[in-house]
Nucleic acid binder design. Structure first.
Lengths: 126, 126
DNA sequence: CTGGCTGCAAATCTTTTGCATCCTG
DNA sequence: CAGGATGCAAAAGATTTGCAGCCAG
């Protein structure tokens, strides 16, 4: 985990993300942080998210087909996503997954995660 | 699994995908099929892929952050992706994953998959 | 002063959409 | 003839990039 210069914009992004369980997209983060920093630009949001990711502070999720989502928890953990409304919820890791031998020769694994696809109760009602 | 009208374009997409282990993107599929059908349009590729997905013939993967990828194997299975070159390789399912009780009340799971993130041997050499 | 950060606008890339035309049954 | 499929172009969305100006050490 590297150090990084702490600017007001970066702090604002961090604070918005911190403890946030919604797995927001860049656009949602931009909208929220804009309230405090009306001059905040999209480029800065993307730059900041990339910097935070490289620093190991946050995690980028590629689970939603429409956009990247961001998770303040950088530790490996699992997710369940509603295939209708794209709501994402954290799932605790219950077992470590391993590659079959044949593939573990070809790939050096740095992380793994389980994704559950389902329908949330709110969407099921409709 | 529904029936669908079999047009030459759809057949060409299906044949390109069939047995293909590369998990190609829409653009790669378009380029390949264009060789046979020079008038084939992007819209038709996307329409066809969506039709095939709805018919349960293929699977859409949301693993590569840059683009959707398509898998001719519609059955649940796992993947390993190289975080550098984005190469994707199939991984056999070795155990069925389940949601913790608390969440299984909120979500009705339709599928789950494990994604391994790693570096492939080709990228490791560099 | 210098390097990094920001803000803005434009560019890029993927995917979707509207619409006219074309086939096929 | 009707409905679905195709091709084309434009639109829409997400993300990246170039660049000028700013700020802090």
């Amino acid at each position: 985990m590297n150090t990084m210069k702490m600017t007001p914009q970066r702090l604002a992004v961090l604070q918005y993300l911190n403890g946030n369980t919604q797995h927001p997209s860049a656009e949602e983060i931009y909208r929220a942080v804009s309230l405090q920093y009306p001059t905040m630009s999209f480029a800065t949001v993307y730059n900041t998210l990339e910097t935070l990711r490289k620093a190991g502070t946050i995690q980028e999720l590629w689970i939603d087909p429409l956009r990247k989502r961001f998770d303040p928890n950088p530790l490996p953990h699992n997710h369940v996503i509603c295939i209708q409304c794209k709501k994402i919820v954290d799932v605790a890791v219950e077992q470590i997954m391993e590659l079959p031998d044949r593939l573990s020769e070809e790939f050096e694994i740095v992380n793994s995660q389980v994704t559950f696809f389902g329908i949330c109760s709110a969407c099921k009602k409709q």
